[in-house]
Each structure stands twice: as structure tokens, then as C-alpha cells.
Design a protein around this nucleic acid. Structure first.
Lengths: 180, 180
DNA sequence: TAGTTTGTTTAGTTGCAACTAAACAAACTA
DNA sequence: TAGTTTGTTTAGTTGCAACTAAACAAACTA
């Protein structure tokens, strides 16, 4: 294999994470910023991120704050320097928990609430109607969906409450699943 | 609570699933189609889906095929009728498995492969360079990321291989996690 | 054969999220 | 005070995925 310069390899990595980011419905800029920070041994400022990723200051400013809110990136201040510096979170399990926690996205929860609301209205149904069978069918279906969502919600709640999660935790779960 | 007609309640439900669909980066039409099918006791044809969702034939045709590929919806033919009919898959755990299975999305896997490729190039590094520390740092970082991805991949592989998964499976996992 | 009923494909449109450029605000220095 | 250095907000642009309208294809009927 032909050896290439570290800079070139890094650029490929940045492209790769950008695509992954895009695949999950996140801005490409977020993947690129994370990649730069993840490969840097030292904290990096906004202007250097602009230089390394090719996005404008405004875009970086917005994206990096989103990344920080998701726990993928951490802000650092240096004494006697009013620049903001950033470093990547390298514990991905922590990141997963942090993202799951941040699902008070209101957008999603409002949608889930609407399902719950539908169930409520169906249960308050006039059960002497001619189309009682239709009502019952719909009621059962929506109730099942609700119970599925509740199960997932519980799982997420437990995961976010874990004090530690790591490779070993995953191994344990795999063990449990393969045994059963 | 004021009781409303079944039709109106259904429409709300359709809106709700559309939003959820959109939230996950899927077309709204897919959520709407699934909602219609999910609440119908009988199989439904393309033209009726057009009528109930308000999308055009072309859009429905495309979206419903995607849904079928993801295992959220099943095609049915009736004898002596050349229409296609569709029903919703109501076992959500089956759906989750089916979606995870369908992640041979090539788009995503190509991106993951690029990370693996980066690691390969870093490992073939000239280790007598002046910036050896930089190379080592990058190498370790990418190796850690790779191992995280591998763990997830294993988990997904195990889940898709399960012959059954249901509410009880989730309960078991929750039990395991809360004990540890 | 011509006409009908179905689903699919294609060319073009449209809305929206991610972006840029530039104004702005805040905190500092000289 | 005026000027600089930083990050944020805003108005406008742009690319792209989801859509529509309509042509098309396939399988049938009369």
C-alpha cells in the first residue's frame, strides 16, 4: 500500500464522517467538525475549524453548538484567551446516552403524544354504534402501538440512567440474547 | 371529552404518524400510508391509498414499495383481481429486525468501509517520522472508533438473527441492565 | 384489434434544511 | 473613545429529496 501523508489521510476520514453524518440525517458539517476534533490531540478554535473544514464561520458556530448540546463535543476556555476551544468526546457510549437523553426533542414527543391522544379519543368511543367493530379494531391497533412505544421508552430510560456503559455492557446483552 | 367521528380520529392519527415518519428522515407519505393500512381491518389497494392520503399515484407507488422492502407493509394479491392490495405489519419487533437487516444500505456501509480504510492506511504508517506522535494519536483514535462500530455491528447481527423478539425480550434486557 | 385497468417511470416543480455573506453584539485593548 | 477580536444572528441562496402530472408499459377484456 502506498503511504500517504497524514494530512491527506485525515481529509479522507473527514469525508467519511461527513457522509455518515449525512446518512443519519445530520448536517455534513457536523460530521466534518467532529472528525477534525476527533483526530486532533489538542483543542481547536472556531477559526481553525473554519480553515480545516472549509465551512464558513456562521455554519461552524451553529453546528458546533449543536454538537456540544448532543455531548459529542466539549467547549474549553483557556485562561487569558477569549477564544472558545473544542475537543471531541471520545467515549462513544457516553455519546449514545447523551443523544438518547436529548430526545426531549419536543418535535418527536409531540408526535408520540398525538398517538397517545388518538388512543384516548378511541377509548372514549360510543360503543353502541353500528360500526362498533371498526372502532374496536382501531382501538386495539393503536393500543398495541402505544405499548410498543412505552417499551422502547422504558429501555431508553434505563440506558440513560446507567452510570456506565461500555463494550462489556454490549457483550452482556449479546450473551443474554444468544442464550434465549 | 367530546367524541368525534372515527374518520376524523383516523385522520389525526395519519397526521401523527406522518410527523413521526418525517422526524426519522423518512418521507411523510410513508407514515401516512402505513397509518391508513395499520388502522384498516382489510387490505387496501393503491387507488384507495391515493384517496385516503391525498398523494398521487406515482408517490404512493414508490413509497409503498419502499415500505414493503422494509417489511413494514405486505403485498397481497386477490384471486381473479389484478390489483395489488396491502396490509400493515403489526408486529413492530419484526419490523425493527427487518429494518436492521436492510441496512446493507451500501451508502452507510461504504462510509463505514472508508473508516476501516483510514485505519488501514494509518497502520501502514512510516513510524520513523518526526511527527510519529501525531500518527500514533490518530491511529489509536480511529482504532477505538472502529472497535465501537464493530461492537454495534455484532449487536445488530445478533438481533437480526433472533427467531423471536417481543416485549418480553425487552424486559429481560432491562432486567440485565438495571442489575449490573 | 382497440380499449380498459392497473402499476411504474420520467420530466419537471417545489419546499425546506443547510449553507454563505455580511451585519451585528459583546468583550476586550490602546 | 475608536479599533480589534471573537462568536452569533439574520437575510438571502442553493441543492436535493419528495412530490405532481403525465407518459408509458403490462396485462387483461370485448
Amino acid at each position: 500500500m502506498e503511504t500517504r501523508s497524514l494530512e491527506v489521510i485525515k481529509e479522507d476520514f473527514i469525508q467519511g464522517l461527513s457522509q455518515i453524518s449525512q446518512f443519519w440525517g445530520l448536517p455534513k458539517s457536523m460530521g466534518a467538525i467532529f472528525a477534525v476534533l476527533y483526530l486532533s490531540p489538542t483543542a481547536i478554535g472556531l477559526d481553525e475549524l473554519v480553515e480545516k473544514t472549509g465551512f464558513t464561520k456562521g455554519a461552524i458556530s451553529t453546528s458546533v453548538r449543536t454538537l456540544a448540546r448532543m455531548g459529542l463535543v466539549h467547549r474549553q476556555s483557556k485562561l487569558g484567551d477569549r477564544k472558545d476551544y473544542y475537543i471531541a468526546e471520545s467515549d462513544f457510549y457516553k455519546v449514545v446516552r447523551s443523544i438518547l437523553k436529548g430526545r426531549e426533542n419536543s418535535e418527536f414527543d409531540r408526535a408520540l403524544a398525538s398517538v397517545r391522544n388518538t388512543l384516548g379519543e378511541l377509548e372514549a368511543s360510543p360503543n353502541q354504534e353500528s360500526d362498533a367493530a371498526e372502532w374496536d379494531f382501531a382501538k386495539n391497533r393503536v393500543a398495541e402501538m402505544q405499548s410498543f412505544f412505552d417499551g422502547l421508552d422504558n429501555l431508553v430510560r434505563v440506558i440513560t440512567a446507567l452510570e456506565t456503559m461500555n463494550q462489556n455492557t454490549v457483550q452482556k446483552v449479546i450473551g443474554l440474547l444468544t442464550k434465549s
